[in-house]
Design a protein around this nucleic acid. Structure first.
Length: 278
DNA sequence: CTCAGTGTTCAGTG
DNA sequence: TCACTGAACACTGA
């Protein structure tokens, strides 16, 4: 379920399993779609015998810093995840699903075994993810093209306001644009706009200073809360739109009793609350 | 059987 | 250049 919080969770898991340890075994599926420009042989050569110095994230991308380049860069697509051996998978955001305790898990594309016996698998059900090799992941596309990361470098409100000035793109489209805000995906965009009481169809440039400040505050709040929820396995606050957005029932309501409506923006289903955001 | 979906990218339109 | 749409990718689950 990879939007920023889930990707950050994946980063932390990979860090716990891999940091400071040497890769002693690499197994990868033959899957040219997943391993774009990084075939199994090259990936094998890049990883085997290397020590993982750090695991970094920006937006929805995660990469390993190894003791030699190139470094692997991961994108989970819609259905990708890291899994560690003997680690119960957390329930995905979209709803309960039976935990898969098999090892290696179904849909494993890459399996790494470390010197201490720890194991990390990259799984991907729908194959929309990517593994690439980069000499400098942060300095090269696609990561270098990303905008600010709400967790790493959220700009102050006046800077944000300047970046919105004159733009006609609708707020929903802007939030989904990774070159603007890296890591924001469909449900976070809707949640932020709901909590900031902003109509997703508003042109970005039409926001006043107070509204920009609100958008910024809620962006930080939703993302940091979601990361904490993931880390602590606690529930999302009851009042969040989050809980209702997947039902798509015609009479869906928030915990406050507000009617939820759905429309399509930027090619994505958008849940919003007209009485609050209208 | 049909169809929507947590994401990205590209082609085409205005 | 900007903004938007639709398609493609591939597969699951409702």
């Amino acid at each position: 379920m990879p939007e920023l919080p889930e990707v950050e969770r994946g980063r932390r898991l990979a860090e716990r399993i891999a940091r400071g340890r040497r890769v002693v075994r690499v197994r990868c599926a033959r899957d040219p779609i997943i391993f774009e420009g990084a075939g199994p042989a090259r990936l094998h050569r890049a990883l085997l015998g290397r020590e993982v110095r750090a695991v970094r994230r920006r937006g929805k991308y995660v990469w390993f810093e190894l003791d030699a380049r190139p470094w692997p860069l991961f994108h989970f697509g819609m259905t990708g995840a890291f899994r560690a051996r003997d680690e119960a998978p957390l329930l995905p955001a979209s709803g309960p699903r039976l935990p898969d305790r098999a090892w290696p898990p179904r849909f494993t594309k890459l399996r790494l075994v470390f010197e201490d016996g720890g194991e990390l698998c990259l799984t991907n059900k729908r194959r929309l993810g990517r593994v690439r090799l980069r000499n400098d992941p942060a300095g090269e596309p696609p990561v270098s093209r990303l905008g600010f990361d709400p967790l790493l470098d959220l700009p102050p409100a006046p800077v944000l306001a300047e970046r919105l000035r004159g733009r006609k793109i609708r707020l929903k489209g802007l939030l989904l644009d990774q070159s603007f805000a890296a890591g924001v995906g469909n449900w976070i965009a809707d949640e932020v706009l709901y909590q900031a009481r902003l109509d997703p169809r508003r042109p970005a440039g039409s926001l006043g200073p107070e509204e920009v400040a609100r958008l910024r505050r809620k962006l930080r709040h939703v993302v940091t809360t979601a990361v904490r929820v993931d880390a602590d396995k606690r529930r999302f606050p009851r009042t969040w739109l989050f809980h209702q957005r997947w039902g798509r029932r015609a009479d869906a309501r928030t915990a406050r009793g507000e009617a939820i409506e759905h429309l399509t923006l930027a090619g994505r289903t958008t849940a919003w609350v007209p009485s609050v955001q209208g």
